[in-house]
Design a protein around this nucleic acid. Sequence first.
DNA 1: CAGCATCCCCTTTGATACTG
DNA 2: CAGTATCAAAGGGGATGCTG
Lengths: 108, 108
Amino acid sequence: MDRKDRVTECPVAYALNLIGGKWHLQIIWALYKKPVQRYNELKRRVDGITNMMLSQSLKELEQYGLVTRTQYPEIPPRVEYSLTEEGQVLIPFIRELSKWGAKQMSKS
Amino acid sequence: MDRKDRVTECPVAYALNLIGGKWHLQIIWALYKKPVQRYNELKRRVDGITNMMLSQSLKELEQYGLVTRTQYPEIPPRVEYSLTEEGQVLIPFIRELSKWGAKQMSKS
DNA sequence: CAGCATCCCCTTTGATACTG
DNA sequence: CAGTATCAAAGGGGATGCTG
């Protein structure tokens, strides 16, 4: 049971559980910039992420219905990830957050 | 040196450092619902928060310029907190997050 | 290629008690 | 009233190595 499964009545707390982690928004943003990506491609784009965190994050994001995973039964294996419509809803949100963050950074 | 002082180039990560914690948004929301509040009043409204987390969070929020602290030199001491304009900017943002979170909650 | 298992650390969070 | 100090706990995050 990870933290996202904990019961919360507050929608804001719930939302932060889904996307407040260290990597989720970065992964979503990477998938926005290039809509279809394979595992290792993603790993190269999300700076500093480890296999552990990437696969774990992707699994969670898939569970929440923000990311789709498509596996092709080939050798070597090919797995492609992309944003669902629900995931794309977050894009303007990330933009706002980025603008606000940049403004705060410049102030101090 | 707390986590908010760590260097980050990414504005989104920076923003999450400021408001991604467990209590910051709840405190801001409480201060929005009642714009001027004393310490213990806030503590009662933010469900489950301890003195440690409340005083620490308030200190951080004040540093970031999101909250103002006004101390009156009286006995017993009186300290009032309220949102700055910068802090109020976050209100529509929290509303959106809440809407999105509620939708996600209802799906699973 | 795409990922999982294991081990470990350290930061965040919490409980409790105390002070000007 | 408005906090601070101290100690303890939990779990998120990371490094490394292994597998189908």
